[in-house]
Amino acid sequence: MFDSVLFISSAVLVLVGSLGVLFIKENLMHACVSLLTALFGVAGLYATLGADFLAATQLVVYVGGVVILMLFGIMLTGGGTSNENKFGIEKVPGMGSVKTYIVAGVNVLVISLIVIRIMANVMKDYKAVPLPPYESTVEKLGTLLVTDHVLAFEISSILLLGALVGAAIIARPTRRTN
């Protein structure tokens, strides 16, 4: 019963949050808060499936980091501005040219084909089986990360180091040459 309560509430959070992201147009901040709701719900879904470490990581990375950065970005660029120009006429933002439509259409086609192909297997062999008994994933993840997947681990650390150095260079006060 606990599982279904957790699942239903998380699923409702995800649905409400994602629909909010889609349909809140007038204020980006509100859309960002509903994105927060959706990400929180995803953490709940992970917890329902017994992936405790993934759920906590979802909280730390998205709720603690990404959403705050998005809020900062929206605030500093003025997310609440209206769509009217100075003459009071509603601006419709440019939606691209024929070329972009064609590229986007091909993309949608390819991605949906892939998704359908993946989903088909799942749907055909779908059987409602009870979840396996709960066990901790932390130890296994830790062991795998420094044994089998150590290359991916190190490469992602190099990526992060690059991001850090780049941020330091951007934030550094510019040197005056003269």
């Binding site: 808060v33 759920a55 906590a56 979802q58 909280l59 730390v60 603690g64 809020l71 932390v138």
Partner: peptide, 26 residues
Amino acid sequence: DLNVGVFYLLGISSLVGVGIFIGGYS
């Protein structure tokens, strides 16, 4: 006593930061 206790605590308490920021903005 979650297996990821400390990690969970770090994650959930970052909601406080979001709350403070939104309070200031709104």
